[in-house]
Design a protein around this nucleic acid. Structure first.
Length: 723
DNA sequence: GGATTGAGCCGTTCCTGGAG
DNA sequence: CTCCAGGAACGGCTCAATCC
């Protein structure tokens, strides 16, 4: 027995069955910009020393070690990296885990997060939370997509109370558990001797529901903090410590009976949760409140904001003037808001700079809204209480009626005796947009099966409708057109928000796919008039967006518009055959969003010209990629000439060396990593094979035997054959 | 330095269609 | 019908460009 009193070592040794069992470790920066995560591996007996001496060289992702060793303790304290270990045995990724060492949960009492619908609501909730005195910090945040949420961090005292309550409540279940205390909660471990990999996830799920612990903490290769190291995420550093020791190692049977593990109950809980998570599309919106356990959600329907506003607009006047759409906007913006609103009275008395009114958007008895003249705009309406604000009557009308921008302009124009007429160019455009709408209603499946294949899935038809409609209501001006079509812009985040998507990346890839197919075209940057690229003009455009968002005054936000993608909508009916051809090609070549929707992948699959259409930056295909591709091609050639076929798996497991030219011009031989080989194969296999080979997927045992595959499993394998 | 954007890589989770 | 590999979605992280 060792005589040292190293607690971290003692802790880890509980998890292993022998002194030379391996442990995988990882460090993560606790704070933003704190560097990269690093990986380490140690046998247990290497750690049988004071933790200030624990150190080694980190292992990079490609398996090679880093240049200098890292002393974990000082790295943890000075560089503020958290120090974690992979609880289960085998490796640091899920597929490498071979043995379950323990069941574990992570409970967190430090924070609460509430999602709300508007900044006003967020501020109100934040105020209420602050008043309770239970929180150390209450923050109103806004996601990139414009959703508001309130994060609140409990005071130390509250965290302590919650911790005690939690331990008391579950003392029976934790009787034979290892309990580790973190700043915000606990890591609870139950050592286990004979749990299968497949059972692990089910039991973890049960524990998550039973103890309302962090739902993320259930993966096989989960890392948790090592005791004795310091947790420095918050202001005060906290040393992770072991509260309760145990050497009890459960068998699965003992565990399931002593903790009353019940899988059916888990399924019921899951169903309940699913119902709560269901969100309405389009018409209804819901509010989610997530408490600090991250699991209990209450969902309420929100009001249709603005519908009940106590505001009335003036009646239309007889037409005295006919103007174009953009002229009408100018005219409306140049007039005071009171020209359009009959109630409340928003006129500013002569000689005064502003007027105060009772806000029509909330129950307001003491005037908390004001109408004033700003430097950049004729008039601005802004409520200090509920923070509804607009820069002209257009915004007010849109908030009240939820009309589109175009309809709003038309109706407001009518109120001042103006009729909006279309120019010839606008009429042509309207036809395209209308035709496109109709095009989507047709029986596309029969007429254009490949086109249909791509647009029928994953709500892509919704993207098409949305972008087409967006074009039709954002007609800028004839002088700003490309190929005689209306040019409009859209940011990915904005589309994401409008279409209720969860990730900008998904939106981006979908839009790229639609561009690739040919439904839209990106306008090359050199064709965008200089004045539209200038800040001032972009601000003008942004104000429109801001109105559509019905958000508070967008003065700040209007300063941030840079990389904008400009699009034109094609005439889909005219191009349907070409789109169908492209869709056919993509399917034939085995196009996949995951693998090919990037410049290198698409260039390899479809050629440079098409790739440039979708990705306009001047990224080049990596030289390295080409070299490795040549090598792989050679292997396929020789293999097929020798045995008549080539298994893709074999190519991946082969050691391949290829030449690269380093930055100083020297040539060097490099060993291809697995990932590099995989990249080349997934991204460009079909293109490097020329026309003489085909790739076949084989799954049945008999067929696999033909290719010398003897393993008794149902795994699909890929083989390259002569055509 | 902070914010924001498009774009990249990588790993996990959810879902589906085809093989058996 | 079941099962599972692969595709799509999602989320974490980085990076460069760009502006205040």
């Amino acid at each position: 027995m060792s005589s040292n009193n190293n607690i971290a070592y003692k802790f880890l040794s509980l998890f292993s069955s022998s002194e030379d069992e391996e442990f995988h470790f990882r460090t993560f920066p606790e704070q933003k910009g704190g560097g990269y995560a690093k990986n380490f591996v140690h046998k247990l007996d290497e750690l049988n020393k004071d933790i200030s001496k624990w150190s080694s060289q980190a292992i990079k992702r490609d398996g090679t070690p880093e240049k200098y060793p890292t002393h974990y303790k000082s790295y943890n304290e000075k560089k503020k990296h958290g120090f974690y270990f992979v609880v289960n045995f085998g490796g640091s990724t899920d597929d490498k885990i071979k043995k379950i060492r323990a069941f574990y949960i992570d409970v967190d009492f430090a924070k609460e997060k509430h999602s709300v619908n508007s900044e006003g609501e967020a501020q109100k909730l934040a105020g209420e939370l602050k008043e309770t005195g239970r929180y150390k910090k209450v923050q109103v945040n806004r996601t990139k997509s414009g959703n508001h949420f309130v994060t609140a961090r409990f005071t130390k005292k509250e965290v302590l109370l919650a911790k005690n309550e939690f331990l008391d409540k579950h003392s029976e279940a934790f009787k034979d558990a290892l309990i580790v205390e973190t700043y915000s909660g606990f890591h609870i471990y139950w050592l286990v001797s004979n749990c299968s990999i497949s059972l692990f996830a089910k039991i973890e799920e049960y524990l998550i529901f039973k103890f309302k612990s962090d739902p993320q903490v259930k993966n096989l290769s989960r890392v948790l903090r090592v005791p004795e190291f310091v947790h420095q995420k918050y202001e005060e550093p906290f040393q992770i410590r072991v509260l309760q020791w145990t050497e009890r190692r459960f068998t699965v049977d003992e565990f399931t009976s002593e903790l009353n593990v019940n899988f059916q109950w888990v399924e019921e809980q899951k169903k309940k949760e699913k119902v709560l998570q269901t969100k309405g599309y389009g018409k209804k919106s819901f509010k989610e409140v997530i408490d600090h356990t991250g699991l209990e959600r209450t969902v309420t329907e929100t009001e249709f904001k603005g519908k009940n506003a106590d505001i009335e607009f003036v009646y239309p006047k007889p037409t005295v003037k006919k103007v174009t759409f953009s002229e009408a906007i100018q005219e409306i913006k140049s007039r005071p808001i009171s020209d359009f609103v009959s109630k409340p009275d928003m006129s500013i008395n002569p000689g005064e700079s502003k007027t105060r009114v009772c806000c029509p958007f909330h129950n307001d008895t003491n005037p908390s809204a004001e109408v004033f003249t700003s430097k950049r705009h004729q008039q601005v309406f802004y409520c200090h209480s509920c923070q509804v604000g607009t820069k002209d009557a257009i915004g007010l009308y849109m908030i009240k009626t939820h009309s589109s921008f175009r309809n709003t302009v038309k109706r407001l124009a009518a109120m001042i005796g103006i009729k909006v007429v279309k120019t010839e160019w606008e009429q042509d455009l309207k036809e395209i947009y209308d035709d496109n709408r109709e095009f989507l209603e047709q029986d596309l499946e029969l007429m254009y099966p490949n086109l249909y294949y791509y647009i029928s899935q994953y709500g892509r038809i919704t993207y098409l409708r949305y972008l087409n409609d967006k074009g039709s209501v954002n007609i800028l001006s004839e002088e700003f057109s490309y190929e005689e079509k209306n040019v409009y812009f859209a940011s990915m985040s904005f589309i994401k928000k409008e279409l209720n998507k969860k990730s900008v990346k998904t939106v981006h890839r979908t839009v790229c796919l639609l561009l690739l197919l040919g439904f839209f075209k990106r306008v090359p940057e050199e064709f965008i008039p200089e004045r539209f690229r200038k800040n001032a003009e972009i601000k003008r455009l942004d104000i429109k967006l801001e109105l559509k968002e019905q958000g508070p005054l967008g003065e700040k936000r209007a300063e941030f518009v840079r990389n904008i993608n400009f699009y034109i909508v094609q005439n889909w009916a005219d191009l349907a055959f070409e789109i169908e051809q492209m869709a056919f090609l993509l399917r034939e070549k085995g196009f996949s969003l995951n693998k090919h929707m990037n410049k290198i992948g698409l260039t390899k699959l479809m050629g440079e010209e098409i790739a440039n259409r979708v990705f306009q930056d001047d990224r080049r295909v990596n030289q390295k990629f080409d070299r490795l591709e040549e090598k792989i091609k050679e292997i396929v050639d020789t293999e097929i000439s020798e045995v008549g076929y080539c298994r893709v798996d074999d190519v991946l497991s082969r050691q391949i060396r290829y030449q690269i030219t380093e930055s100083d011009g020297k040539k060097k031989i490099k060993k291809a990593t697995f990932k590099e080989k995989e990249d080349v194969i997934t991204r460009s296999l079909s293109t490097i094979l020329e026309d003489k080979y085909i790739v076949k997927t084989v799954q049945s045992k008999e067929k696999k035997k033909l290719f010398g595959y003897t393993k008794n499993d149902t795994k699909k394998i890929k083989v390259i054959l002569n055509k």
